[in-house]
Deep mutational scan, measured.
Amino acid sequence: TIEDAIKKLLKLAQKGQPYTFGDFTVTSEEEAKKLAKWLKKQL
C-alpha cells in the first residue's frame, strides 16, 4: 500500500539512503516527509 511505501521511505531516509519512488529521488528525511505529505494528498 501507499502507507507501507511511506513507512519504508521514511526508514530509508533516516539511514541516509537515497530512495527512488516513481519520478522522485529522496535523499533526506526532510524530502521524504514532503513526499509523504504529497502522497497522502493523492489518496
Rank of each mutant, 00 (worst) to 15 (best):
T1N: 09
T1P: 09
T1I: 08
T1A: 09
T1D: 10
T1W: 14
T1M: 10
T1E: 03
T1Q: 12
I2W: 10
I2E: 01
I2V: 09
I2P: 06
E3S: 04
E3A: 09
E3I: 14
E3P: 06
E3D: 06
E3C: 15
D4C: 15
D4F: 04
D4L: 08
D4G: 05
D4P: 04
D4E: 12
D4M: 07
D4T: 08
D4K: 07
D4N: 08
A5L: 15
A5R: 08
A5V: 15
A5I: 15
A5Q: 07
I6Q: 00
I6L: 10
I6G: 00
I6C: 15
I6E: 00
K7I: 08
K7Q: 07
K7W: 09
K7A: 11
K7M: 06
K7E: 15
K7Y: 06
K7R: 12
K8R: 07
K8C: 13
K8H: 13
K8L: 14
K8F: 14
L9S: 00
L9E: 00
L9H: 01
L9P: 00
L9D: 00
L9A: 02
L10G: 01
L10W: 10
L10H: 03
K11S: 13
K11C: 15
K11N: 10
K11T: 14
K11P: 02
K11M: 13
K11I: 14
K11R: 08
L12G: 04
L12A: 14
L12P: 02
L12R: 07
L12D: 08
L12I: 11
L12E: 05
L12W: 15
A13I: 13
A13H: 03
A13L: 13
A13F: 10
A13W: 13
A13V: 12
A13D: 03
A13Q: 05
Q14M: 14
Q14L: 13
Q14S: 10
Q14E: 13
Q14D: 06
K15W: 14
K15V: 06
K15H: 11
K15E: 11
K15L: 13
K15N: 13
G16A: 06
G16C: 11
G16V: 09
G16E: 08
G16L: 14
G16W: 09
G16R: 05
G16M: 06
G16T: 06
G16D: 06
G16P: 03
Q17P: 15
Q17K: 08
Q17D: 09
Q17I: 15
Q17W: 14
Q17V: 15
P18S: 06
P18V: 07
P18E: 09
P18Y: 10
P18N: 06
P18H: 09
P18G: 03
P18A: 05
P18C: 15
P18T: 05
Y19M: 07
Y19V: 11
Y19P: 09
Y19E: 03
T20H: 05
T20D: 11
T20L: 12
T20I: 07
F21I: 07
F21S: 02
F21Q: 02
F21Y: 07
F21H: 04
F21P: 01
G22C: 15
G22S: 10
G22D: 14
G22A: 06
G22L: 13
G22T: 04
G22E: 11
D23I: 15
D23Q: 11
D23A: 07
D23L: 15
D23S: 13
F24A: 12
F24V: 04
F24T: 01
F24H: 04
F24M: 03
T25N: 07
T25Q: 06
T25C: 06
T25Y: 13
T25I: 14
T25S: 08
T25M: 09
V26E: 05
V26A: 12
V26M: 12
V26C: 15
V26F: 05
V26D: 01
T27W: 06
T27R: 05
T27M: 08
T27L: 09
T27A: 09
T27Q: 06
S28H: 02
S28T: 12
S28M: 06
S28G: 04
S28L: 04
S28Y: 03
S28F: 11
E29C: 15
E29H: 09
E29I: 10
E29V: 11
E29T: 11
E29F: 13
E29P: 12
E29K: 07
E30C: 14
E30L: 07
E30A: 09
E30V: 08
E30R: 09
E30S: 12
E30Q: 07
E30P: 02
E31F: 08
E31V: 14
E31I: 06
E31T: 05
E31Q: 15
A32N: 03
A32G: 03
A32K: 02
A32W: 06
A32Q: 02
K33E: 10
K33G: 04
K33Y: 10
K33C: 11
K34F: 10
K34G: 03
K34P: 00
K34V: 07
K34R: 08
K34Q: 09
K34A: 13
L35D: 00
L35R: 00
L35Q: 00
L35N: 00
L35F: 05
L35T: 01
L35G: 00
L35W: 04
L35A: 00
L35S: 01
L35P: 00
A36D: 03
A36G: 03
A36M: 12
A36P: 00
A36R: 04
A36E: 06
A36Y: 13
A36F: 14
K37Y: 10
K37L: 13
K37C: 15
K37P: 00
W38C: 01
W38Q: 01
W38I: 03
L39R: 00
L39P: 00
L39S: 00
L39V: 02
L39N: 00
K40D: 08
K40Q: 12
K40R: 12
K40G: 08
K40V: 12
K41F: 06
K41Q: 13
K41C: 10
K41L: 11
K41A: 11
K41P: 01
Q42W: 11
Q42G: 05
Q42A: 11
Q42E: 06
Q42L: 09
L43F: 08
L43T: 02
L43P: 02
L43Q: 05
L43Y: 07
L43V: 06
